[in-house]
Amino acid sequence: MQRDATRIEWIGNSCRLLKATATEFEKTQPFAGLTIGTGIHLEPKTVALLMTLKAGGARLVCTGNLNSTQPSTVEFLRSQEITVFATQTTDPVAHHKSLEAVVAESPDLLLDNGGDLFAIAAEAPYAGLLGGTEETTSGRTRLLPMREKLNMPILVINDSPIKQFAENKHAVGQSLFESYMRFTNRSTNGKRVTVFGYGACGKGTAACFRNAFSTVSVVDIDPVTALEAHLDGFSTPLRNEAIASADVLVTVTGFPAIVTAADLPLIKDGAILMNGGHFPHEIDVAAFRQHPEVVRIDRYEADHIETLHLRDGRSFHILGGGHMANLAGPRPLGNSVESMDLGFTLQARCLERVARREVGAESCIVPVPRDIDAMVASAYLDMAR
């Protein structure tokens, strides 16, 4: 007998930790009677996490992130009687309405990615919000000034060592490298690549391009981090030199305005700009588009590439409108199943801990508890042996 299986099934069956967690949650029901509001990239790997939470008794109210929602994922989630307020959009206003719709459901727990949901809850607090998780460094940076308004446990997944090396270093680096190939169909051999940011994501990105025979330079404003890059064998030129020499510029810092229109005189003819940070503000795409020196823009709509032609005859290319390149392209890749299995299991276990009220409000915006890291690592190693 033959049947057509789906990518969602392939991913779900590949997430062995989440499958084991879902089996446990079916028995323990840690989220019985609770609503979980989520704002994360809606793609097949997310389904594995959301179905694990549903198995634990949660009612789910979901939206996505800018420009990464996959319609097939939304369709599947709705077929599972999960409420989804999301469309594939690059419009911040439309996206914000979806976020507000999730918070309007007064969820007991929030699973956030970039601080969007918690920021809304901080400005319009409601009774019954227990806390939740934040996925990213960008979100932690955004939420820290709101600590007094939030005053609830928010566990930052990105501060977990497992998240740092498994997902950020290995998976983000690999997926950004492969996304460059998917977008451009160009080689990496001999290309001069400049990576902005040498955190975990930057380390993985720099290593993957170097392993693919690129000449890689690193720019980081922290001299200690730049020294680490130097000792790892990467060149660490001054910023202007690094931009001017680059065939490919990759931003993975978590901060805005890393490459701006002020850098236009430096950008090499034919250079490719791509972003791997959570928010689409590391490359100031709007300012580039509106710059008086830009005389024509060619948009390759099917490939999500823009070519900006300058008055002096140079041209350069922007991938995915400055959104996360590994989730913004025509063939969105995302991170590997194994890395997301680890990261999403951390999410599920942290939400379980908050739901059971085993983390106090005084623990607002803190890393994943060490014992959860150890539990997840041990379970993964047991399966790998």
Rank of each mutant, 00 (worst) to 15 (best):
G199N: 07
G199K: 07
A200T: 00
A200C: 04
C201T: 07
C201P: 02
C201V: 05
C201E: 03
G202S: 04
K203R: 13
T205W: 15
T205D: 15
T205Q: 15
A206K: 00
A206P: 02
A206N: 00
A207P: 10
A207Q: 15
A207D: 13
A207F: 11
R210P: 00
N211W: 14
A212Q: 10
A212L: 07
A212W: 12
F213I: 13
S214P: 08
S214I: 06
S214T: 07
T215F: 09
T215D: 10
T215M: 10
S217N: 05
V218G: 00
V218F: 00
V218Y: 01
V218W: 02
V218C: 02
V218H: 03
V219F: 08
V219W: 11
V219R: 07
V219K: 05
D220T: 00
I221E: 06
I221V: 10
I221Q: 09
I221H: 04
D222V: 04
P223A: 09
P223V: 08
P223W: 10
V224F: 14
V224E: 15
T225F: 09
T225R: 14
T225I: 11
A226Y: 06
A226P: 06
L227C: 10
L227D: 12
E228I: 01
E228R: 07
E228N: 06
E228S: 08
A229G: 05
H230L: 12
L231Q: 13
D232Q: 09
D232K: 08
D232H: 10
G233A: 11
G233Y: 14
F234D: 01
F234W: 03
S235W: 02
T236S: 06
T236V: 13
T236R: 08
T236L: 08
P237T: 09
P237S: 08
L238K: 15
R239Y: 03
